[in-house]
Write a protein that binds this DNA or RNA. Sequence first.
RNA 1: GGAGAGGUGGCUGAGCGGCUGAAAGCGACGGUUUGCUAAACCGUUGUAGGGACUAAAGCCCUACCCCGGGUUCGAAUCCCGGCCUCUCCGCCA
Length: 426
Amino acid sequence: MLDINVIRNYPDKVKQAIINKHETSANIDLILELDTQHRSMIFACEQLKSKRNEKSKEVNALKKSGKDATALIEETRNIGDEIKSIEENLHGMDAQIKDLLLRIPNIPADDVPVGKDANDNAIVKSWGERKSFDFPPLPHWELGTNLNILDMERSSKITGSGFILLKGLGARLERALFSLMLDVHTRDHGYTELFTPFLVNRTSMTGTGQLPKLEDDMYHIPSDDLFLVPTAEVPVTNIHRDEILSFKDLPLYYTAYTPCFRREAGSYGKDTRGIIRVHQFNKVELVKLVRPETSYQELEMLLGNAEKILQILGLEYRVAKLCTGDMSFAAAKCYDIDVWAPGLNKFLEVSSCSNFEDFQARRINVRYRGEDNKLRFVHTLNGSGLALPRTVIAVLETYQQKDGSIAIPDVLQPYMGGVKVIAKKA
RNA sequence: GGAGAGGUGGCUGAGCGGCUGAAAGCGACGGUUUGCUAAACCGUUGUAGGGACUAAAGCCCUACCCCGGGUUCGAAUCCCGGCCUCUCCGCCA
């Protein structure tokens, strides 16, 4: 959520940001108009309240001195009725403004390239050598099915399409990967590990910005009005909702493994094969709450923490600075990490590292008291560290061998109980 | 699921219709004292919105004692609904 003062003072800047982000539902002029009306109503209402408070005191004084107060009571009651009718309008207007405000996206940072879609993103880094094969590398679904570690047919029997069933060393590989990630982030990068609820309420979803915009993309439990987490960002960022932290508490670094549930409404027919795009996947998330003046430095560090996982796995990747049009609703600046999948012959997004500045903090009302004793909103950041299925794809496709087996990278072997190769059972 | 108890400021905790934005204590901050620390003493100590002012500081007004309604001239205080916490019983991995 943007500060209403920013909209009042720099409406053109906000409008430009909306255009650059291709957000259509935000209406700045309407907000400004409502805001002006709203303020004059508040003024009128508060003046009446002031008058009522005064008269009430007079009533009390009269009664105490034993005089008759009926006329004054009658007069004050009328003021009260007037206040009530204004307040009814005021509440409606409040809600309308709040709703409009929640639909205004964050303003991109100054160094974010203006652009339309992923084609306008700036590749800022490439890491690793392109691996060459002396045989045509297979896509992961063929590798996984042949090795009997991935079973998409049976998973759709259980649930439907877009759900993963891993078996044997495939399941073990999944567990090995998120264990490795959590260990690296807690041991080497200073994050505190959390294990959170996988169902969250509407307030939490609104706080991080998934709602109201993306409700159709979320799995919802109507009987309790709860949502399955689309990312650990939601429970983790909401931990400190409505809290005032001390500057001594900051920065806070959290990491959490959760499954992520996404309906992927609107992306039917895209990436339907294999496990590139699924409705449920595992992810290790990194979340930071920091002081505003450090947030961009913290973003670079967060990005580095996520990259580290690909580096130790020896997987080729690139980093893109997203353009305005490709960035999410709540982000001010965002980097994507794309890993190379040789069998698919393309890059896959495995992480998105974003600085939200105070956009989420304002929604979740997390402030901190500085050395000067003043209250300020914290800045929030998050990034995947990393999303599992696509990391699995990269591992399977990168380390596939001519006979269809998979060589397990050294760093994963201890997590695999010493297994060095996933091979077909004889 | 059934029966009770409760939610007040950073914390503990009083207040139960007007004198209460809220006693007292603790904590925190500033000061006096001190070789240093501690103690003692003095003082300060909520947030948000609106208004006039060029802006900050300061000033005025309004709101906030879990949330939302109601009663009343007037609500932290009375009534109704919701949420949350705790205790007991039942059920259960």
